[in-house]
């Protein structure tokens, strides 16, 4: 399973998403889009919007910390 979490350092929902995945023992890449311009563009292209967090779970895009959707994908 490949999981990416696009996030910013001050975003509370990003922290929630991160801690949730950790609690489920899911391995993921945590990408800070405020520090990585290319990653930010990648996130905007994938999700069609600019809100964080964005999760890419095996190519499925989840916008926001949508727990029910995350549960259905992990």
């Amino acid at each position: 399973m490949s999981v990416k979490v696009y996030s910013t350092p001050t975003c509370p929902y990003c922290t929630m998403a991160k801690e949730y995945l950790e609690s489920k023992n899911v391995q993921f890449d945590y990408i800070d889009v405020s520090a990585d311009r290319n990653a930010a563009n990648e996130m905007i292209t994938k999700s069609g919007q600019r809100g964080v967090p964005v999760l890419d779970i095996n190519g499925n895009i989840v916008v926001g910390f949508d727990k029910a959707k995350i549960d259905s994908l992990i």
Binding site: T8, P9, T10, C11, P12, Y13, C14, V33, S34, R37, A40, I44, R50, G51, V52
Partner: peptide, 10 residues
Amino acid sequence: CATCDGALYQ
């Protein structure tokens, strides 16, 4: 939420 999404507006 500026603390969330502000960083996307560099």
